[in-house]
Design a protein around this nucleic acid. Sequence first.
RNA 1: GUGGAAGUAGCUCAGCUGGUUAGAGCACCAGAUUGUGGAUCUGGGGGUCGCGGGUUCGAAUCCCGUCUUUCACCCCA
Length: 447
Amino acid sequence: MKIPPVKGTRDFYPPEMAVRNFIVDGWKKVSLRNGFEEYDGPIFEYLKMFQIKSGDEIVEQLFSLTDRGGRDLALRPEITPTLARMVNQRINALPRPIKWFSVPRLFRAERPQKGRLREFFQWNIDIIGTDDVLADAEIIFTTIDYLRQVGLTSEDVKVKMSSRRLLAAVLRTIGICDAALEPLYALLDKKTKLPEGTFRALLAQQVPDSEVAEKIEAFMDVKKISQIKNVVGLDDDVDAAVDELAMVHRFLREDMEVGEYCKFDPSIVRGLAYYTGVVFEVHAQEGELRAICGGGRYDNLLCDLGGPSISATGMGMGDCVLEILLRKKGLVEKELQRQGLDFFVACVPGITFDDQDGLVKSTSEDEVVRLTTQLRKKGLCADFSYRSVSLGKQLKQASERNAGTCIIIGEEFKDDKIAVKDMTTGEQELLGYEEFLSNLGIGREEK
RNA sequence: GUGGAAGUAGCUCAGCUGGUUAGAGCACCAGAUUGUGGAUCUGGGGGUCGCGGGUUCGAAUCCCGUCUUUCACCCCA
């Protein structure tokens, strides 16, 4: 019986696995060099934990199960609740600020489409326990640091940033009441995806006062943080929010040297209600891809999940959209070619080697295994052919395996010599067996 | 969850309005080549035409259902 892969999942054959590792290894490397420590939690949690934060609609998009003890569980659709749980559990013992990262495997029972599957990986970085905007800047910087690391330039991608606090202050100043904020956020979030006329019509529904609606539109057209005050007028809350966002931008531009990646964009709202401050998304400049990542400040979430009131800011980046973009930009091919063996050990089949008394000591096939063992003992990647086939076949295998060097055990092994062939240049030299082995470690660090 | 499009070999696809035994390229395996790889040539394996049902003397081809993929919505933690 043929069993197909489950809807929305991927099989990682070696080439796909190499790409996945390229992505994940980059995430980890960049996290560590920016001072984040890795954590992880269980792949399933109590269903209730996800319900608290997200509500019933989200529950329909969870893979849930009941265990034999009657516990209602769910495969994690995100790791932030787990992070909050772990931090809350040891909140008094953990030194702050907490700078943690994770690369969890996540599950969402949504209908799959381009850049969105039912099982995927997501890079999460969070800074918990400080309300300093420098932490927001660092989250954004670390995100850019990764994008830059894999070769995406400020021509390729842009960090669009705004602020929930700013948006709330602006809307209140204009005259929107608190109850109307949430549905309005949802609409503003969609502005760039809707035709202008449609947006205007929907806005008119929510905001009947055309003067107010015009002000909202004017705000949505603002290109620079410094222009906000001119459009909205004077207000202490707006001023404070503007200054805060301007400070994040200044850190990124003047101190972290990534200003060319960043721009203010008032249409960045983020879907979820729990964001409280700076919010941002990274988008590819060209093409119709969904956001590569998103993040922001969420000062109330830990408290909502049963912990103390502690501020936090973070970012999540999934692997699906990122991979599509990296492939489109030709940034993964090089990585695929780099993997391969250090050595492939081959032999001329059927040669026997005698000891001093003329008795058979070993065959060339035996010596292949012995030499490979020595190479592996030194931590090198080495392999050989199981079947005793012609030397030509073995060399072919060596090049298919992308071996850097091929070693040939032939007649000259009777004089304790081996042929060492460089597979890229094709050059070959005879070396003493012991001499070759003892020189192996040297010069390897430079590679 | 709603609507559109598609599904033929591991991959990309051909197969005219239903008509013998379903093809090609690439990939894979073997040989040419028992001490020298990436090339070339020759040969080979591999398909219940996504699955199930219907129409028909006859279905890869037409119809229905279903699964999967994909696009647009909903949503996007």
